[in-house]
Each structure stands twice: as C-alpha cells, then as structure tokens.
Simulated assay, not measured.
Amino acid sequence: MPDSVPPAENPPRPFRDRPVSFVRRSGRVSEAQERAWTELAPRFVIDPPRDAAATSILPGSAVDPGEVWGRRAPLIVEIGSGQGHAIIHAATARPDADFLAIEVFRAGLARTMLDAERAGADNLRLVEANAPEVLQHLLAPASVTELWVFFPDPWHKTKHTKRRLVTAEFAAIAAGALVDGGMLRLATDWEEYAVQMRSVLGASADFEPAFEGDWAPRFDGRVLTAFERKGARVGREIRDLVYRRTPRP
C-alpha cells in the first residue's frame, strides 16, 4: 500500500461556495465606453486585488475610505447600480456623503463614469465586483452608513432562486459592513421576492424594521428610473423595505 500523502500546509481555500447573483454577458463596447475605461477609470474606479475570478476580491484587501475619497464622510453603497442613474442623482444631491456603486457589467460602469463626470459627482467611486465580496473583503467592518439594493435580479424561475442576492447569508454580511444604526434599503417589483426579503430580514437579529405595516413607503432618495416607470406601466407594484442595523453587543 503506498504511503499516504500528508495534507498541504495551506490547503486550497473554498471560493464562492454558493452561486453568485449575476451572469456576466459580453457585448459590443462603444468608443465612448472605451474612453471611459481609459480616461476616467483611474479617477472613479477602485481596482482591488482579485481572487480566482475577474469579479472576486482577495480577502484582506480592505481599503481606507479616507484615502479613497480623500475625507471622512458617511458612506452610502449601492449594489447593482446599473447605468448609475440612481446613485449619480444621489451623489450630486448629497455632496456631504461618499458613494460607492457596485456593478459587474462593464457597459453600465462605463456609462456611470461618463455621466458622473458630466454631473461633477466627485464623491462617487465604482467597483466591478461581486457585491458580497466587496462588503466582506474590500470595505472595513462597520464602515457603511447606508446599503441600497434596488431591483436586484429576481431569478423568478424555481430552479434559479438559489441565485438570489438577499438570503440569510447576505443579511449577515450586510450587517457586518453597516455601522450600528445604519440603514439597509431594498426595493423590488417582484412580489414573491419582496416577501422573501421581508422574511429573511425579519428573522435576522442584526436588523429591525424601520417601517410600520407590510411595506415601507417609497424611499424618496431613489430617483424614478426608466426601469421603475416601465414596471409601473405594465402593472408591477414596487415594494420598498428598510431595516436598521441593531447595536452590536
């Protein structure tokens, strides 16, 4: 019988032990988008060390917000910022706060950079990455004042619901990133996903609802986007939720 092989001193670390909430798609890159990545990315984009995938974050890569934004201010993070309509509007309306857009689609990030430059949103930064890894590995614990999850992919087919972002695991990660009293704001036009979100956050000891009744009022800090207008036109009701991070022991 051959001698057994001793275990490696540093066995491979598990990577993404659950499906991610997105599927990246490649597409044609316009000249304007190319310019954004060439000329504007050094100004707007945080480029962290990567793990095993292009959208991963190497553990231990936390940034110092004071160095990234050049000051100490409340930090508001949006997951799935799309083309940046909501977060650019918020960043220009709130010059007293710093903003971070998390997105995995390069075309959307490019459009966000172009529009942010045009709007003079100097308090906005972007990162191309898987959102839970940003919260876990790029941002320091208890560094986020508000976390926004607006219209995440509902993955409405039963076989795909495991890909949904808002789960008990995500709630724990979000709680770790938020300051005590920090706000987690969510919105979706998919009723069944809204119910799941409410169930997940309601079961978490790290959060308490900051609304009364079944749903929160529409967050007035969320600009009305074309996506939301389109959903309303076809009869999809928008449901908001908002939760407060409970004090740490």
Rank of each mutant, 00 (worst) to 15 (best):
G80D: 07
A101Y: 00
R118Q: 10
T145F: 00
E128F: 01
A101W: 02
A119I: 13
V134I: 12
L126C: 02
L114E: 10
E78Q: 08
E78C: 01
L109M: 11
L58V: 12
E67M: 11
R72H: 10
I102Y: 11
G70V: 00
V63I: 14
A54I: 13
L75V: 03
D115M: 03
R106D: 12
V127G: 01
G120R: 09
A119R: 10
L135A: 10
P74N: 04
A93M: 09
V134D: 02
T145K: 06
S81G: 09
R125E: 02
D64K: 07
A131L: 07
A110W: 04
E146S: 07
P74M: 13
Q136V: 15
I87A: 03
E133H: 03
A86D: 04
L100A: 00
G82R: 04
R125D: 09
A54C: 03
A107G: 14
H89R: 09
D96I: 07
R94M: 05
A86M: 08
L58P: 00
T145Q: 15
A119L: 09
D64S: 11
I76N: 05
L58I: 06
G66A: 01
L114H: 13
R72C: 06
L147Q: 11
E67V: 10
G82E: 04
G84E: 09
L139R: 03
H85G: 09
V77I: 05
H85T: 09
T55R: 07
V104H: 13
H137D: 08
Q83N: 07
N130W: 10
L135D: 11
R94N: 13
D96A: 15
E103K: 06
F105T: 06
I76E: 06
A121W: 07
L124P: 00
I87G: 01
R106V: 09
A73I: 14
W148M: 04
A129Q: 00
L100C: 04
V149N: 14
A101P: 00
A91T: 03
T145S: 15
H89Y: 09
S81A: 14
A91N: 07
V68E: 05
I76R: 08
E146H: 08
E117D: 10
T55I: 09
V104M: 06
H85D: 11
G80M: 07
R72V: 08
